[in-house]
Amino acid sequence: MFPDKFEYYAPKSIEEAAEFLNGHEDAKVLAGGQSLIPLLKLRFTSVPQLVDIGRIKGMDGILFQGKTLEIAAMARTADIGENQEIRKNFPILSEAAGLIADPLVRNMGTIGGDICHGDPANDFPAVMLALGAEFEVTSARGKRIIQAEDFFTDIFTTALNTGEILTKIKIEDNKSSGRYLKYTKYAGDFSILGIAVDLSMDGTKIRRAGIGLTNCGATALKARKAEEFLEGKEINDENTAKAADLLLKITDFVDDDNGSTKFKEKLLKYLFKKAVKGIGGVPK
């Protein structure tokens, strides 16, 4: 099947792209295209104009600025997963990248596209929530910063205003260690559910906890109550079990072909406990 007709625009700079979007409110930004192109081909959606930012130079960089990791929005998933500095300093991000879909999608898909698509089953959003990332967005009016926990507002909906483009992701190095675990029916499939857990330690106690949930509601979810409960506590079975119970208070599971609500609740608890044990409370 072929998509409806649309006007194709390939700007040479992010400023040019932003200016075009400012005058075309219904235009859609094309990043890696791994989510948008199938939707267009199947005619699940249509757009009057498509703005391809993939040709803009400098939009795919991965850079460490002191204690801050800066990832340009067009950085490919495969490059994130294979970057040695990310593997060393942000293992949770590297692990999540390696679990996304298949090699073809990872080689073409971008972190910005994954985040901005707003699909609750996508993997990077939960990791962004766990890491406390912030997003730099650009428009004809200038730049602004959106915190990850404020970015995901509803299913397939984000806090981006009309004409805004996600240009950069910034993540502070909290000397943490983390895991991203997901459960799927088939290899390379979307998550039935997943969890990102990132812990910073002071000796045997948790100094900072970051937890993000995949496909547990209409958006990626930040488990604020569970994070606050864990901070200042030691990692043991009792504290982990209590934190797991707090996770369930923010989920919005439904019975479907992927399993019952009770099954998903048990699965989420299992993955959380496995993630925490996988981290082991050992700072890098």
Rank of each mutant, 00 (worst) to 15 (best):
F2E: 15
P3E: 15
Y9V: 15
K12M: 06
E15Y: 10
A17S: 09
E19Q: 13
Q34E: 15
T45N: 04
G61Q: 15
I62L: 06
Q65T: 07
L69S: 07
A75V: 08
A75T: 12
A78Q: 12
I86Q: 05
R87N: 13
R87H: 07
F90C: 10
I92N: 02
S94D: 09
S94K: 12
G113R: 03
G113F: 08
H117E: 10
D119Y: 09
A126T: 02
A130I: 01
L131E: 02
A133Q: 00
T138N: 01
I146M: 06
D150C: 03
T153I: 14
E172L: 03
D173F: 11
N174K: 13
N174W: 07
G178Q: 04
R179L: 05
Y180V: 12
Y186T: 12
K205G: 02
I206V: 15
R208G: 00
I211H: 01
N215T: 02
G217S: 14
A218Y: 14
R224N: 03
E228L: 09
G232A: 07
K233N: 03
E234W: 00
N236A: 09
A241L: 12
A244D: 05
L248P: 02
D257N: 13
D257F: 14
K262E: 14
F263N: 07
E265M: 08
P283S: 15
